[in-house]
Write a protein that binds this DNA or RNA. Sequence first.
DNA 1: TCTCTCTTTAGACTTATTCTAAATGCAGAC
DNA 2: GTCTGCATTTAGAATAAGTCTAAAGAGAGA
Lengths: 136, 136
Amino acid sequence: MEAAEIEELLTRKGVKPTPQRMVIADFLLHTFSHPTADEVLAAVENRLPCALSRATVYNTLNSLVAAGVIQEVVTEAGKTRYDANISEHHHFVDRKSGRIFDIPGDMVPKLKDNLGDKFQVHNYQITFYGDLLEDA
Amino acid sequence: MEAAEIEELLTRKGVKPTPQRMVIADFLLHTFSHPTADEVLAAVENRLPCALSRATVYNTLNSLVAAGVIQEVVTEAGKTRYDANISEHHHFVDRKSGRIFDIPGDMVPKLKDNLGDKFQVHNYQITFYGDLLEDA
DNA sequence: TCTCTCTTTAGACTTATTCTAAATGCAGAC
DNA sequence: GTCTGCATTTAGAATAAGTCTAAAGAGAGA
Ligand SMILES: [Mn+2]
Ligand SMILES: [Mn+2]
Ligand SMILES: [Zn+2]
Ligand SMILES: [Zn+2]
């Protein structure tokens, strides 16, 4: 995804593409690592000609979530992670390394209609915890 | 569950049953509400003859989790909740009220064996988000 | 150019959780 | 029954994640 596409994506989702938002979106759209806000800050602060504020990182992440460009992922207490993969998918957390892997939605049976008529499910997320075998 | 049973449970799991641990475990074993640490503190502090420290609440919750008496449940960023229901089950979060409901494990198809041979799943949790219909 | 509005910034603030160091409470040894 | 040692509890300090604030900056349109 190149700059023009990212700019078009942000504009289409109603987020004005400022330089700060562009580098943050660009970083998230090109990583598989489900970074925290601090990791985003560390990764992009040297891609801008001037200082990048922690507040701007949080503001931007919250705006991108609200606009549906990225999603929050919470796999462990106290750490919010961000994911530019907004397709229906789930997560596997390696208990040893803590690394998070995407599990495509179609690798898991669909669950929306199993809960009876009391719970109307809008969305759901599955987090698997276990051991990564064949080290990838 | 009465006091003697809770005492026996803690002892069997290797947690010495102090008065503080007893009231915290007793509260958790008798609620369906998935409380936060602060909610636990507020609920039990007047059940003890003397002051209860925030540190003790956290120490106890962490000990009970480590011993497998309770589990952590994270359904939203920044809030750790505790659940004395350690049977295999999942959660439904009402988007309007934030209330959390238990979804028995057998209401959802088993997923452990769907992920191929790269991911060895130890456990997993499903969080459903949606709207509670027929107000219960 | 002027002005309005949105954005960014640094740092203060809040909230959740952990750490620290001192006091307390028992259980076993004597 | 007293002593002693270790685990537990306590209040408050410290840390960490995230939000708020007030002032500065930047761009779009009149
Ligand atoms: Mn993902
Ligand atoms: Mn539960
Ligand atoms: Zn690209
Ligand atoms: Zn009972």
